[in-house]
Design a binder for these strands. Structure first.
Lengths: 181, 181
DNA sequence: CTGGGCATGTAATTCGTTACATGATTGG
DNA sequence: CCAATCATGTAACGAATTACATGCCCAG
């Protein structure tokens, strides 16, 4: 049931449409939660049926109409309760590390390429995160309470990203010592 | 299909039974791949049917018999091929960070407790990882090729863990500035 | 000889992914 | 007008979780 709460969390600050939520799950929120647009649309229907979200259609000139969802009071309460429940999920699955277990002279170059690619993706992401930090969270201790939590999630993303870059460098250095087949 | 390859990877060095695999997925491998025993038993049957694993029963005095699985030649080849395919999964889902988005004066203490708990779990895990590194991977550049890959996965776990501890400290410090309700 | 734990498994349900569909809009 | 794109959605399938089941051995 965690996707439901992820969606409601994304709606705390602003009402959003399915595609806007989808984009959030690819960028900011995407660091610690992923969901496809298909999942999101399904879940939005379920949540609206449950009475945790309300739904309204917004006319747009020169664009398809958006269907915008917002938290109801019941939704806010369900979300607040959920925070006190048991926290279970902390899954991390990474095929790349699995593949490294299979390292040999034949595939070393291939794996090095994959790591290089990921390094670049992470740099890109870090650049965005750092920009957000500078512009909105320069002085964490002075933030309003809820924003402190958002800042901490951002900080987790940034420090994980920096650690990852360093690991990539170590990995590429070590892989370069593997003699090609 | 990645669970199949995770299991085969775990069987590269030694033949294992379902419960032994299960334990591996909780500890070493568990850092970047998780699987329940139910999933593992199901997948073992599938893989044996496919001819990628062989299966033999080992009599044990004073214990239930173990059913031990090992890679076949076909399994080794399928695994080697898989390394060259597209690497998609890098999912990370963490309810705790999601909950931090919902930070307020009421739940700050609860969240601080959860972070403290996770910090201790991670310390425990790091202690094990560091011990393995010291005893088996003291000089990475001198390792045989495949072990270099295993080392890199371990190194990813360790540096991620260290980063996480630092983040926990930052988080606890900032949470302590939230006035209780 | 019984209660608890371990190794192995099955079944039902929920969650997530892949593939496909539809209408409307904008760029060329 | 045609191709590409966006927003919304459905269907089928595969993966993962939850709940339950069975036999066997050990400790008390």
């Amino acid at each position: 049931m965690a996707l439901a709460h992820a969606i409601m969390t994304a709606l705390l600050d602003a009402d959003l449409s399915g595609s806007e939520l989808s984009r959030d799950f690819e960028t900011s929120l995407g660091f610690f939660w992923q969901a496809s647009h298909q999942q999101i649309y399904q879940e939005l229907h379920k949540l609206a049926d449950k009475g945790w979200l309300n739904r309204r259609e917004v006319q747009q000139s020169g664009k398809p109409n958006r269907i915008v969802y917002g938290l109801t009071q019941a939704g806010r309460e369900a979300l607040a309760d959920w925070v006190f429940g048991k926290t279970r999920m902390q899954s991390a699955k990474d095929e790349l590390l699995l593949k490294l277990y299979n390292l040999n002279a034949q595939n070393a170059q291939h794996l090095a390429n994959e790591i290089t690619q990921r390094r670049e993706d992470m740099m890109q992401r870090l650049y965005l995160y750092e920009k957000v930090r500078r512009t909105h969270y320069a002085e964490p201790a002075a933030l309003p309470t809820r924003h402190k939590g958002v800042y901490l999630a951002l900080a987790a993303g940034i420090s994980h990203g920096e650690q990852f870059l360093a690991w990539c460098d170590e990995a590429l250095a070590l892989l370069s010592t593997v003699e090609p087949a």
